[in-house]
Computed example of a mutant assay.
Amino acid sequence: MGRGKIVLKKIDDSMRRQVTFSKRRKGFLKKAREISILCDAEVGIIVFSCTGKLYDFASSSMQSVLQRYTELRKEGHQLLNPASKIKHCQREVASLRQQLQHLQVLHRQLMGEQLSGLSVKTLENLENQLEMSLKGVRAKKYGYQLSIDSHKLTFQGNVMQQENIELHKKISLVLQENNALRKKVHKARDVNRGSQYSHEPLNRTIVHDVLTPSNFWPSQPQPQSKEARIESIHLG
């Protein structure tokens, strides 16, 4: 469910009002800084809290912004004659020179120079700008590193996929060779079994002849003649 519409009215609770002011003030000044950088606009903001505390922001300098505002309010937004156009261009040139000087001073301050005469609030603003710049640089560096890592991972993935394909090819070749060897082994076994079955009856007959009972019984003595018996008696 979406959030309900917030009714804009004064907050009665002073503590809650102060917290809301602090949050909205930070967001308001942040948006003003962003629009001045992104759109190259000259922005000046002056805010007084309920306690009378002053908060301001200027893209170049508050004095130049106020001066430009008062002059434009006097002359109007439209330029009527060439003389006013020339004056307007001169003011623009002067404003640009002031902006350039302000940027040069700000650059030196960000580099750590000319900080002796600055107030604590100005130093805090410089610190916040440096932190925002560092965050932006780190984010860009992190994104660049992520893109490099993603390219490396993609390349490594392609290499591993190609190696996987080559391994599958080698495994298929090994399996084919293994199947061929198995077929040869089965054929050799079948041939050996066939030869064994062809010689088996001859061996059985030989074994049967060898193991017949007649070969184990002693032979019966033959009857001798009379002359042989007499000769054996003499010899005995």
Rank of each mutant, 00 (worst) to 15 (best):
G2K: 08
K5M: 12
K5F: 02
D12K: 13
R17L: 05
Q18G: 01
F21C: 04
S22H: 07
S22M: 10
R24D: 05
R24N: 11
F28D: 02
K30N: 07
K30C: 01
K31W: 08
E34Q: 11
C39S: 12
D40A: 05
E42M: 03
I45L: 07
F48H: 14
K53A: 13
D56H: 13
L66Q: 11
R68C: 02
R73L: 09
G76I: 02
L79K: 05
P82L: 08
K85C: 08
I86E: 09
H88A: 15
C89H: 12
E92I: 03
V93I: 13
Q98T: 09
Q99T: 09
L103R: 05
L103H: 06
L115Y: 02
S116M: 08
N125E: 10
L126V: 01
L130A: 10
V137N: 02
V137K: 12
V137L: 12
R138L: 13
A139P: 00
A139K: 14
K140F: 06
K141W: 05
K141F: 01
Y144P: 00
S147A: 15
D149E: 14
S150G: 06
K152E: 07
K152S: 05
L153T: 12
T154H: 07
Q156G: 01
G157I: 02
M160K: 12
H168T: 06
H168C: 05
L173D: 12
L181Y: 04
L181P: 02
K184Q: 14
A188T: 04
G194K: 15
S195W: 08
H199F: 06
L202C: 03
N203I: 11
N203Q: 15
T205N: 10
T205K: 13
T205A: 10
V207I: 13
H208K: 10
D209G: 03
D209W: 13
D209Y: 09
L211I: 13
P213R: 14
N215Q: 12
K226N: 11
L235M: 06
